[in-house]
Amino acid sequence: MKIEINNLRFTYPTGLEALKGISLTINPGEQVAIVGQNGAGKTTLVRHFNGLLKPTSGAVSIGEWETTKYSTAKLASRVGYVFQNPDEQLFSRDVLTEVSFGPKNLGYEKSKVDELVKRAMALTELHDKTDTNPYDLSPTWRKMVALASIIAMDTPIIIFDEPTTGQDAVNVGRIANVIAELKREGKTVITITHDIDFCAENFERIIALAKGQVLLDGSARDILGQEEILAQTYVDPPQLTRLGKMLGLKEIVTRPEEFLKAIL
């Protein structure tokens, strides 16, 4: 499902203009990372995709639905949104109930709910934790429950807000696997992240925001080498990109395989 953003502007009631004219198209099945310093407008932008915020001017469409005409509860059938802090959404007594909450709200039949929940739990490696109370799990596993509870809604578009913050290497690996699997299924994945190495290794398209505007938009390789421009929004290029530059490699490298090929 296509996302179309046309000259989107948004001003908070406090008078702060957070988005200053953004136009973008995100095609079905794309893997997009949104980067930029705090206050650049990343969260404000993605909260327009499921109608939590409505444009001050301009328009956002999810497929043929214009977001101003639908409630967030309705848009939830098209756009799943994993909030940064799992503690802000978990409330059930066991993991199974928690993960079923979203698909039940969307009104799927029981057999479909069961199937979606099972798949989401397998994907997030939670299958042996169905009866556990989410609050007895470590913060890392609570994060996976939050992921599963959105994946089970089976929306064509999924948004992750800072999925790797506070996670250890093992769990970052798990989250990368989840994103790869969603990609295979043809879902659109949009991620806000500060972790530029994670970004380089898992996303094809990068959008850098600065002060409510699009600073850069393109393929990872085209964007991540532009050190001076990225510095405007306090983003450092990935470690291997910096290394490649220091070694004087001709092309921009972002991933280990590319780097190893390039130094041959």
Binding site: T72, A73, A76, F83, F101
Partner: peptide, 27 residues
């Protein structure tokens, strides 16, 4: 916001709103 993103309808009938209290108060 997080629960509305999971399809929780907080804007319609009173009964539905009353039912949506637990997901809001728990966290």
């Amino acid at each position: 916001s997080a629960q509305r993103s999971r399809g929780l309808d907080t804007e319609s009938s009173f009964l539905k709103r009353a039912g949506s209290l637990i997901p809001l108060i728990g966290p």
